[in-house]
Design a protein around this nucleic acid. Structure first.
Lengths: 179, 179
DNA sequence: TTGATTTGTTAATCTACATGAATGCATAGG
DNA sequence: CCTATGCATTCATGTAGATTAACAAATCAA
């Protein structure tokens, strides 16, 4: 999505916020969870389990929207943290903004498409998680998001795949040895 | 969702089809993948991997819509099979029907809500898959869908959780022994 | 620059879950 | 009715990936 105005009426310049690498835009347990449109940079969302381990739910590069949809939909306190992997420019979309009554027909339709696509991506991810080995999931990740690996550390990719950094390192070793 | 007319204009009675337990409504590799609204009964969607093993993506009881959204969105041949776990009454929604231009404002909005909720559910599932043990995933499944276990065989729940029937049987043994 | 912290890699060990096989039960079909 | 097929359970064994630890390279802070 090149232009945020396709789904929202707003002054893009005026609403843009800047954040530095490492800054946290949303913490778990916060209520009133927001959505973030990424104009520039790279964000991620993740949970932290009881053992203090991070699990990355998604990466959001330029043009993506990132949010804790579960907590929004079920009106629960957020379960996801959201922070910056790179210095980023972001439009903060609060609930009011997202469901403004003056949204046009086309904007709602555009949002419908966006949501469908998100469902499609998640469907694929779930199927990979229940049916494929760590190695297959990694290779599929590289195909689907070829630009992400250059921008994020291995350990985050491992976290996204649901394995440890060590396991990913071993897998990468095997792959490169084979070629 | 009690009433399909909330998202679609159509004569519900006229469009209802009946299927028996075990009947397959959609096969992988078919293109022109459809969506199915379940009026009565229980459907499931699943993939079959290279080793011939089934992996259940979702169950759809009364009031749910089930489809291969990935293949619809990316216009690829279906990856999911859809069949009946019980005798069922179903409204078949083809692509034309779902995106009819005469959909009203409210209907699109309703569909938007439906999609958001689906994203929320999938978000939760992904997080469980990358961060929780099989036992935790099973217990979370029981809480989230307390009525499903009475209607489907254990092996299908195992498949949904991404584990083998044997592993699920062991987990169930442990749980009941503890109480 | 220097020391300190983070990152990726490798290796040894451990464990959750898979695989394969045997058994008892239920259900379905002839 | 009997037999066949599918389902759940249990057990023995195998394995993918977790854990722990050690080390080198890169990055960061002072």
């Amino acid at each position: 999505m090149e232009n945020i105005n396709e789904i929202l009426n707003l002054d893009s310049e005026k609403n843009t916020s800047r954040f530095n690498k490492g800054e946290i835009l949303q913490r778990a347990e916060e209520n009133c969870s927001k959505a973030f449109f990424v104009k520039k940079g790279l964000l991620r969302s993740y949970t932290i389990d009881d053992k203090g381990k991070e699990h990355i739910f998604m990466f959001a590069p330029e043009g993506w929207v990132i949010a804790d949809i579960e907590s929004q939909e079920f009106k629960q306190p957020a379960k996801l943290f959201i922070d910056c992997i790179e210095d980023s420019e972001v439009i903060i979309l609060d609930r009011g903004l997202l469901h403004k009554p003056d949204r046009g027909f086309d904007q709602i339709k555009k949002n419908e498409t966006l949501l469908s696509r998100r469902v499609a991506v998640l469907q694929r991810r779930v199927i990979m998680l229940i049916s494929a080995s760590a190695k297959d999931r990694y290779e599929s990740f590289l195909e689907t998001y070829p630009k992400i690996p250059n921008r994020v550390p291995q350990r985050m990719i491992a976290s996204y795949l649901g394995i440890t950094p060590q396991a990913l390192s071993t897998i990468r070793g095997e792959i490169s040895r084979k070629k």
